[in-house]
Nucleic acid binder design. Structure first.
Lengths: 231, 231
DNA sequence: CCAAAAGTGTTCACGGTACACCCATGC
DNA sequence: GCATGGGTGTACCGTGAACACTTTTGG
């Protein structure tokens, strides 16, 4: 039994580079799965797998993520397609890579999954990666760093309610450079995209900060008028 | 005869959206091929075809372009991968789309190719396109318009020697808005990326303009120092 | 001498950047 | 009362935007 074609066909897979922000450790994390089988048994890889019939690439990416990590709600965007022959020793495989942003708080420990080793790693010192996943990670990071500056995707990494300091720390972690507090607040509040929730942090050992949420609706409205988000 | 696999596999193709700049007509053009066979016989499509074993996606794109249009030297960049089931009525086909920039002067008539209808069309009024190529064209245009502003790829569309007015017209055509002549010159010359060839236009019925060429080497040097090109 | 495009400076407004202190809260 | 982060305003500078006339060349 099998499927026969006149010409050879490469396999098509999707891979997801899932980013999460660890505010406590002030670190950007990536979600990886440890491979049980060869090739690259023991090394870590992005969640992903074969594209099935009758599903779009994005559906495929979401399905694999759900199956392998239980993650469902996320920001997902196509990154790049890698198809060098030799990138998979088992045969020509073209992989469509996606990158995803999730709220780490929604998907914390994960390690004790169904016998599968799934874990978050610092993007700055990841374990040894299978296939060409180190190259994919590098490209995903570059894309995230570029995109976070001109699209309000950073909010996808934060809890729904966040403080201005958390938002600033997010940008500092992703962009790997310090930002001036007063200028940051002036700029971000000036855009009018944050809704003051009239609610403050609880259980902090210092003055409690104001909580905000991102005004998605207003953002769409402003974009329609030609507004450009920029940090 | 044939190739048999345990699971069904989508076909993998590449498609190239080739842009050329028609300075005489002040128009941005795209290179299309008329389909002889069904599906979509008679409609126009981007050059492209199946990815073969043992070639990278980019090699594949270049090979198809060479075979179908004779074009070889060009700027080529991956655009996006389209894989919706149903985008090809013959079966699930994933296509990795590239976009390319060529110097139109090097590839002018083309129409009288080996019985194949190949022609340049204005991007603003293309003919009816096969498959989901209208969607791909739209995305390629958006990418070009965005990228031309922060990467010096526009030069790929101009002859090696060009005048400042031609360069300005290029940006005006691609961005679809007028630019101020004095500000444009101030900015572009201020970057120090143009080499004055100490040579002027010939055979023009008005004051001959100075010719320049893009200083690729200096651009790479500046980028290494953290320079960002921007129009 | 006329048509056509080349070439050239200045002013103004705005946004980015630099920078330091007081405030509220919990322990 | 002290440690910890929260919250605030102003001055300067550089860049982007607006804007009009003179020069050169060929026909």
């Amino acid at each position: 039994m099998g499927y026969t074609y006149q010409y050879p066909r490469p396999s098509v897979t999707v891979d997801c580079v899932v980013f999460g922000l660890d505010l406590a450790a002030e670190d950007l994390k990536v979600l990886l799965i440890q491979r049980k089988k060869d090739p690259f048994a023991g090394l870590w890889a992005f969640p992903g797998g074969f594209v099935e019939e009758d599903e779009t690439l994005e559906e495929s990416a979401k399905r694999e993520l759900q199956e392998e990590t239980g993650i469902s709600r996320l920001y997902l965007e196509q990154l790049y397609t890698f198809g060098d022959p030799g990138r998979d020793p088992r045969g020509h495989t073209v992989t469509v890579a996606y990158y995803a942003l999730v709220k780490l708080s929604d998907h914390t420990p994960k390690a004790a999954d169904d016998a599968k080793a799934v874990d978050w790693f610092s993007v700055s010192k990841p374990p040894k990666l299978a296939f060409d996943h180190a190259k994919i990670l590098k490209m995903a990071l570059a894309r995230l760093r570029a995109k976070v500056r001109y699209q309000p995707i950073g909010f996808e990494l934060l809890p729904a309610k966040f403080t201005l300091s958390q938002l600033q720390r997010l940008y500092e972690i992703v962009l790997e450079r310090p930002l001036d507090k007063r200028n940051f607040r002036k700029k971000i509040l000036g855009m009018g995209l944050l809704i003051d929730l009239e609610e403050t942090q609880k259980d902090v050992a210092h003055r409690a900060a104001q909580l905000y949420r991102f005004d998605e609706e207003r953002y769409r409205g402003l974009v329609a008028e030609g507004f450009n988000f920029e940090i």
